[in-house]
Lab assay of single mutants.
Amino acid sequence: MAAGGDHGSPDSYRSPLASRYASPEMCFVFSDRYKFRTWRQLWLWLAEAEQTLGLPITDEQIQEMKSNLENIDFKMAAEEEKRLRHDVMAHVHTFGHCCPKAAGIIHLGATSCYVGDNTDLIILRNALDLLLPKLARVISRLADFAKERASLPTLGFTHFQPAQLTTVGKRCCLWIQDLCMDLQNLKRVRDDLRFRGVKGTTGTQASFLQLFEGDDHKVEQLDKMVTEKAGFKRAFIITGQTYTRKVDIEVLSVLASLGASVHKICTDIRLLANLKEMEEPFEKQQIGSSAMPYKRNPMRSERCCSLARHLMTLVMDPLQTASVQWFERTLDDSANRRICLAEAFLTADTILNTLQNISEGLVVYPKVIERRIRQELPFMATENIIMAMVKAGGSRQDCHEKIRVLSQQAASVVKQEGGDNDLIERIQVDAYFSPIHSQLDHLLDPSSFTGRASQQVQRFLEEEVYPLLKPYESVMKVKAELCL
């Protein structure tokens, strides 16, 4: 049975990233139509530049190519590739079939990587351009969430054990800070992308030097003109047959890092959902379990974690691919890159769409948070109580021993009897502590235990987050809708 299948058929496997999760716009960027249309555009740009620099290419040939950029006979191309065992030459023939007058000058002087690699770089750039505003929107939604809850005390956790208090907004800023680093890295790697350009079979530009009869300047002009037509500021000066596969490492490393950030955020949300302090959106008709109707599973956060793990592992592909590119190139890269580049971007696209949807509907339960604080705060307040007693004339050592005994009794009630923490009640009825009984409410005010959390939130948002989001103001209103 021949390899390949009808990918629109229910009898043929289709990647869930495309069929179930990723956005239509990201799927289109990695589609065959987008790819092969870009090949034709690159052939047109090459012909236009070659004509401008004096090669015998007519206006009629150029116009014929322009008129057929979208006229792609995919069936013919597939048949040609089956016959020739070469995808680029299959599309040269297919393009030439609908451009008979231009057929002889299509791909003039070029090698397969002229269309293959340059198209990949265009796709990487455009895919990054799709991700950047999506990530900015996630940051914006979380920034709104953090600002609104900047002063809401909550129990902090280290080692997932109760620690000092923080605020809900401050905790959210930990998430935002990681995503801001990801946004900066995505922008950097996007701006650092260079075009492969017009380089020939081993990167020496020998074929173009021959076409222009040894004119170095025209060869350099050709490279520059096509690079500018493709919208790049610069091209690699040095290439082998391909652009260095280190570029793929750079791009997928940034995406993998984004995956790590999203995994951490969504894990926190899942843990908070278990504590009943916070939940992701839950639709009115949504079913959490087929057997347990009360369940409210954090399905979206779980999906993000599941896909983020996949995204983090994909960076190993370009690392290994770059390491086995012998001399000017081997074909070890080809099949692998067809999979890992598309999957990385479709996965990143999915987790950003999902995280935006989550961040637009996060639900906080202040009463649950308050109750958990009441359970733990008495123990945390013991040092403040000791200091207040010393100020009232008591002995630190005597007070410490009193607190120690009462704390152990209260802990026994919590752990052995399943009761509430009654340390404060014990202190309130103990005559030894009568000098500070009137101060206990103040000493137990949760806001006095959150330090500068709310001020940190305000400063972080104003100095770091809002300036970073400013270039994306025009796209901030787009909502994230999930079908599944």
Rank of each mutant, 00 (worst) to 15 (best):
V138S: 13
D192M: 08
G361Y: 07
K187S: 12
W175G: 02
L272W: 11
L130V: 13
G418L: 04
R33L: 12
H400G: 04
V168W: 04
L135I: 12
H93S: 14
V364A: 07
I57G: 01
F28V: 07
L271N: 01
R33W: 05
L69V: 12
E302Y: 00
L124Q: 11
H263L: 07
S253K: 02
V364F: 07
T382V: 09
P133L: 15
T354I: 14
S412T: 14
R338A: 01
D59H: 11
G116P: 00
R404K: 12
E220S: 10
D445N: 11
C173T: 08
F460C: 05
C399H: 07
G451H: 05
F160H: 05
R404M: 08
E148W: 08
K284N: 11
E360H: 09
Q428P: 00
R40V: 00
S207Q: 03
A22Y: 09
H7I: 12
D144T: 15
Y243T: 15
C172W: 02
H442K: 11
S140L: 15
H217C: 13
E277V: 01
A77S: 13
R372C: 06
F160A: 06
E343Y: 12
K101N: 12
F282T: 09
H97S: 12
S323H: 08
P467D: 07
L272H: 06
L319M: 07
D192I: 07
C340Y: 15
F212N: 04
P298C: 11
D445S: 14
H97G: 08
E25V: 10
L271A: 10
G197Y: 01
L186K: 03
Q320E: 06
E213T: 14
V198P: 06
G419D: 08
S448M: 14
A102Y: 00
R190D: 08
S474D: 13
L131W: 02
T111H: 00
I122A: 03
Q61R: 04
H159Y: 01
K284M: 14
V219F: 05
R309A: 05
Y472A: 10
A411Y: 06
V247P: 00
R270K: 00
T111Y: 04
G288V: 05
L193I: 13
M292Q: 05
S412I: 15
A47P: 02
C340G: 08
L17R: 00
I72K: 01
F95D: 00
A480L: 15
L482V: 12
A47I: 05
T450F: 04
S359R: 14
I427G: 07
V247T: 11
P471K: 15
E48P: 04
Q51R: 09
I424W: 11
M299T: 08
L406K: 10
P467W: 15
N384F: 05
V315M: 14
R137K: 12
T239N: 01
R188P: 01
A127R: 00
K246C: 05
L142F: 12
E220G: 08
G8F: 15
G361I: 01
E277D: 02
L319N: 03
A146W: 06
C483A: 15
F345C: 11
I269S: 02
A136D: 00
F379S: 04
A206W: 05
H97Y: 13
H86A: 01
M312L: 11
Q356D: 06
R329K: 05
E279A: 07
G109Q: 00
L461A: 04
R426T: 01
L482K: 08
L179E: 02
Y466R: 12
S412H: 15
G361V: 08
C266L: 13
D332K: 00
V29N: 10
S140M: 14
T154A: 12
P281D: 06
R37E: 11
P471M: 15
Q285C: 12
F36W: 15
S289E: 07
F157D: 00
D120K: 12
C304D: 04
Y13N: 10
H107Q: 01
L258Y: 15
S9C: 14
R37S: 12
K134D: 15
K233G: 10
E148S: 11
P446C: 03
V92I: 06
V413L: 10
L484H: 15
Y432M: 07
W175M: 05
I265K: 07
L314R: 09
I106D: 00
N357K: 03
L46Y: 00
L179R: 03
D215W: 07
P435H: 07
D248R: 04
L252A: 13
T330I: 04
G200S: 11
Y21T: 00
D178R: 03
L255Q: 06
K82Y: 09
F160D: 04
L124K: 11
K402V: 05
L183N: 04
G8I: 15
P378H: 03
E360T: 01
T94I: 09
K415M: 09
A49V: 08
T350G: 09
P293S: 05
F433W: 06
T158N: 03
M278G: 03
S290D: 04
L128D: 03
F236D: 02
L346I: 14
Q221A: 12
L121M: 08
R194V: 04
L179V: 10
K66N: 09
T321F: 06
A235Y: 15
P435I: 06
T354S: 15
K276Q: 06
K75H: 13
C399V: 11
K82E: 13
A90D: 02
G197Q: 06
R194D: 03
R396P: 04
A22N: 13
R190K: 14
I403M: 14
D268C: 09
P378Q: 04
Y21P: 00
Q439D: 14
K284G: 14
K402D: 06
T204I: 01
G240V: 02
G203K: 08
A411P: 03
N274W: 06
K224F: 10
E370Y: 11
I237H: 09
K233S: 09
Q177L: 12
G4F: 15
L132A: 13
E343R: 09
V315W: 11
T38S: 06
N297I: 04
Q456E: 03
R85I: 09
E383A: 02
K415R: 07
